[in-house]
Amino acid sequence: MNASRIRPDAHPASMLAGRPEHSADSPLSVHAMTVAYQRKPVLWDVDYDAPRDALVAIVGPNGAGKSTFIRACLGLVPRVSGVVEFWGRPLREVRRRIGYVPQREAVDWDFPVSALDVVCMGRYARIGWMRPVSRADRDAGAACLDRVGLRGFEHRQISQLSGGQQQRVFLARALAQESDLYFMDEPFAGVDAATERAIVDVLRELRASGRTVICVHHDLQTVPRYFDAVMLMNMRVVASGPVGTVFTPENLQRTYGGRLTLLAEASEAVARAERG
């Protein structure tokens, strides 16, 4: 028997005493999630409730389990234990309401598809099994490409796009999913300034229309500027909540340990956020 077969989300049995009451409208609530590789935990007893209509940054040192957290929420890596609920319901009931933007390196960019093909992939769940991609879906995909500033790139093969454009294609694909909750894994990694602005615009647009976006983010400097809430994570949740109250030098020290350069950088960012 394989431990990964156990689907903790299907069994409220493992809910524990002392579990806080989750409101059914929290887009994501995670309870007692443990992910382990052999005896090494990657995530250990993680509890988290995401706020509504917010941009949330997941911040933590390398190897803190940030990407694993996202992937475990989406059922892409097996969990040893834990409950994950979206709006109070298990993943399989709400799959269509959840969008996912993996790391750019996760796919083969030499794959024989065009930018529009990739964007339309975001609509596959909506289209369903064995139905072809319709004209309406392609139009919707083209509109999403337009929203991220890539009009005219529809038929480019994806390897002929720059890194920033590739990231924007991924973003357009997320838009095409028309989800209520988005997980994004390092959307700002290695992009140019124009793309960074485009991504921030899209994120704000999503928030304005009542969506929640949870991003793995590596740049402490920009956390206060881009995000409303933050989850500091190092195998466990060190602290989570609004940026103003949680994103403090003390909490960062508890997350990153004695990495002084990072701390200096972060407290500078905090100070700047407080000033302006």
Partner: peptide, 22 residues
Amino acid sequence: GMLFKELRIVAFDPGLATSQGF
């Protein structure tokens, strides 16, 4: 023929495919 789009998304991005229910 019937699973062209499914096979394509799984080959390109298995994570996205699984998270969309394929």
